[in-house]
């Protein structure tokens, strides 16, 4: 067999050194735990898991503060855990006497949730912070651990302001909410547990709109829009027909 051209062994040495270097480097430099549980450094999971906790969690608070948490757990703020208002408390858990969580008296903390905002879900208790006893601390009237509305709102507009405002400028302004909606008393204290009703028949609207004597816009109740309920097409809080 003829010997290889001179170039081949020379190049082979260069490439061999390069490849060998790569393998040696791999052996030396790949972290120990890499690949133990997947294509990653398993030790990273442990170091992430070892990060310090800042929010202790309600269960930790319950260890000492059962006296507060028992009534709290039965009140309207039962879903609002301690650290929502008092801030992160793990430092307090670790050193109960040295570190004390904040006690909040500012209105801003309450209005973060309870200021009226049309984007908030319907029925969530909201107030207008400008109109509602401005500058009085909320906790003057409301017990934050077991809040009750001081008096359940008389007017529906306390919560359903946007409907009230629409209705106020509509042809239906003269009607009260109760004309169409019968709200069970429980709705005032626990809105989602007992929802108000709405008209369930066409004749309800027909009391006015199918009775010429009332002087409001009339429709032929028998033929118009059967078989739908009126409010399935017309928006009663701001009816389009004037």
């Amino acid at each position: 067999m003829r010997s290889l051209p001179q170039q081949v062994p020379r190049l082979a040495i260069v490439f061999g050194v390069a490849l060998g270097g790569l393998f040696v480097a791999r052996g030396l430099l790949i972290p120990d735990t890499f690949g133990d549980r997947g294509h990653y450094r398993a030790a990273a999971v442990d170091s992430i898991a070892a990060q310090p906790v800042k929010f202790a969690g309600r269960a930790e608070c319950a260890v000492c503060h059962d006296d507060v948490l028992k009534p709290h757990g039965a009140g309207n703020h039962r879903g609002v855990t301690c650290e929502v208002c008092h801030g992160p408390a793990q430092a307090h858990v670790l050193a109960p006497l040295e570190v004390k969580p904040s006690v909040v008296r500012k209105r801003e903390l309450c209005t973060a949730c309870h200021a009226f905002d049309p984007s908030r879900p319907l029925g969530f208790p909201q107030i207008d912070p400008v109109a509602h006893n401005p500058r009085a601390p909320c906790i003057g009237c409301h017990r934050p651990h077991t809040p009750e509305p001081p008096t359940p709102p008389e007017a529906c507009s306390a919560c359903h302001g946007h409907f009230a405002r629409q209705k106020a400028v509509s042809p239906h302004a003269a009607l009260t909410c109760e004309t169409c909606h019968q709200a069970p008393p429980q709705h005032r204290t626990n809105p989602r547990a007992a929802l108000p009703g709405k008209p369930e028949s066409r004749t309800f609207c027909g009391q006015c709109h199918g009775t010429p004597e009332t002087g409001v816009p009339q429709v032929e109740m028998e033929s118009h829009g059967q078989p739908n309920l009126c409010w399935q097409c017309h928006y009663p809080h701001y009816p389009e027909i004037r």
């Binding site: 992430i48 898991a49 969690g57 879903g79 855990t81 650290e83 929502v84 949730c113 969530f124």
Partner: peptide, 23 residues
Amino acid sequence: CTFCYHRLVKGKVPACVEVCPTG
């Protein structure tokens, strides 16, 4: 977001879940 992994391993829920007032 780590789902507060350091909390999960200690049996706690993520901080955002802990403080969400409305569930």
